[in-house]
Design a protein around this nucleic acid. Structure first.
Lengths: 174, 174
DNA sequence: TTATTATATGATATTGTTTATAAATAGGAT
DNA sequence: ATCCTATTTATAAACAATATCATATAATAA
């Protein structure tokens, strides 16, 4: 498998503290405070960076370390982090909004591989759309700010157990 | 503007009847009937092919020609047409599922240009992802069945009135 | 310190979209 | 005509997400 599909994985210790501090700084810049609830939420997001958590997912995980937190606060915090472009909202068509950290330096979003069999979401960290974006900007006079590219198919883990892949496309929202 | 951004537009008369008949045939093949309600729904979809209607949109339009229809029936019909791959479900992150006809011969979905200023959805009829797909299949051992590619930015109609495009990305779901 | 103000939170109600249910209806087949 | 299945309608329910509002917390001023 190509190396750039590898996930960063949950980093404990120093790296984590560093990133929490950085986010605290970003909030501070916009006159927001890193309250205990917000910090707990941020830490859950950092600890599960390789997943694409829904608000409900985050809520349940935060409750483990801060049982008194309310669902509305989690929603509010996610919205705030999203407003500040610290995280991204994603929609994979399964009815819930999912969240992921925004890549530090990356101008654009990376790409996703969604398995129609097991539902796994893998990532292509690189941005392969450069040439296509230039073509879009020129041919359609469209100023691109961001993009989303998602491939739907069968992942390497499922390929042996799926006989007729075409059948899977069905009525999925995409 | 490139020619392939042009829409087919609502075709009245012969072409419309032909397509209704074709859909009737597709339903029939799977032992479904083209009931009056289903036909009214199909005709609304055909008449507004250039738009990306939500279920509610379709419901209101169908009601104009068949006031007795129920919302649930519209949902069921859209789901049925989607199951049979006659139409596609789309999600542009605005909270509602939208529907569009599936291109006749096209193996894959076309691409969308979404304006962050006015919300317009334009289309790139061509599929420009061939080379990238082959790379994905090879590098990630991922069998691609379909894809979605959406560009978010400023359309040619809005470019003069938007000064700071980056500000628009904010917390949009994508 | 205490009072004052602004900000953030938690519990809950509400909204909006979509799906599920149950009774009524329509069309064919026998 | 009767039966049978598919379909529809109206309504309730499920679900995610947002709004409301009283309370709590933190920052500021006196």
């Amino acid at each position: 498998m190509a190396s750039h599909i590898m996930k960063k994985g949950a980093q404990g210790g120093v790296a984590m503290e560093e990133r929490v501090k950085q986010i605290k700084q970003q909030l501070s810049t916009h006159n927001y405070k890193l309250t205990p609830q917000r910090e707990a939420t941020v830490r859950v997001l950092l600890e599960n960076e390789e997943d694409h958590l829904s608000a409900e997912d985050v809520y349940l995980l935060v409750k483990e370390k801060a049982p008194e937190i309310g669902l509305a606060t989690v929603y509010r915090t996610l919205e705030l982090l999203s407003d500040l472009s610290i995280i991204h909202k994603l929609n994979f068509g399964d009815g819930v909004t999912r969240y992921e950290f925004r890549a530090e330096g990356a101008e654009h979003h990376h790409h996703h591989l969604i398995c129609l069999n097991c539902g796994a979401v893998d990532e292509i960290i690189d941005d392969w759309l450069g040439p296509i974006e230039r073509r879009v900007e020129k041919e359609f006079d469209f100023r691109i700010i961001d993009h989303r590219l998602t491939f739907h198919g069968i992942c390497h883990r499922c390929k042996d157990q799926v006989k007729d892949p075409e059948k899977l496309i069905g009525s999925k929202v995409t």
